Simulated scan of single mutants.
Amino acid sequence: MSKQQNKNTPFKPDYVFGKKNYIVMAIGIAVIALGFILMAGGGSDDPNVFNPEIYNFRRIRLAPMIVLIGFGIEVYAILLDPDKKK
């Protein structure tokens, strides 16, 4: 225990992250999931037929950038100081 506890006071654990951190982490996970959803699809039902839709802008440029932005949000959420007031 890092703080002096008295018998009537319930033990309150010290967490590394605060509520604000978890909210920003959830936003980052949602952005990463959106990026992976945008990457999906574009295949062909017949393996002998090539579908050039797999190389469109959304799957090659947009979706990976959204995933990287999501990872950046996650890094920010980890480094965010939960005790800092605005």
Rank of each mutant, 00 (worst) to 15 (best):
S2I: 11
Q5S: 08
I66M: 06
Y22C: 04
D81C: 01
D46M: 02
Q5N: 10
G35C: 04
M1F: 03
M1Y: 06
D45H: 14
G42W: 06
K86R: 02
K20H: 03
G41K: 09
A33C: 05
G72L: 15
L79A: 07
A77K: 09
Y22K: 14
N51I: 00
Y55R: 13
G18F: 06
P52W: 01
I69T: 11
A77C: 07
L80C: 05
D83H: 07
F11V: 04
I27S: 08
I54D: 10
Q5A: 09
V16I: 11
I29C: 08
K7M: 05
L34K: 07
P64M: 07
G42F: 12
P10S: 08
I73F: 01
M65Y: 07
L79V: 11
D83V: 06
V75P: 10
V31H: 03
G70W: 00
K85C: 01
K86I: 09
Y55W: 06
K86E: 11
G28N: 00
R58Q: 13
P52K: 00
I27L: 14
G28D: 07
G35I: 02
I32P: 00
K85I: 02
G43N: 15
V49Q: 05
V24K: 14
I37K: 10
G18I: 06
D45Q: 06
N21C: 02
G42C: 04
F71V: 08
L80K: 13
K85V: 14
Q4Y: 12
D81V: 07
I60L: 08
Y55Q: 12
L68D: 06
F17S: 13
G35L: 05
V75M: 12
F50G: 07
K12S: 14
P13Y: 03
P47G: 09
F50V: 13
I66Q: 00
K20E: 06
G18Q: 06
P82E: 03
G41M: 02
Y76E: 00
I37V: 14
K84N: 12
N56Y: 01
D14L: 02
P82Q: 06
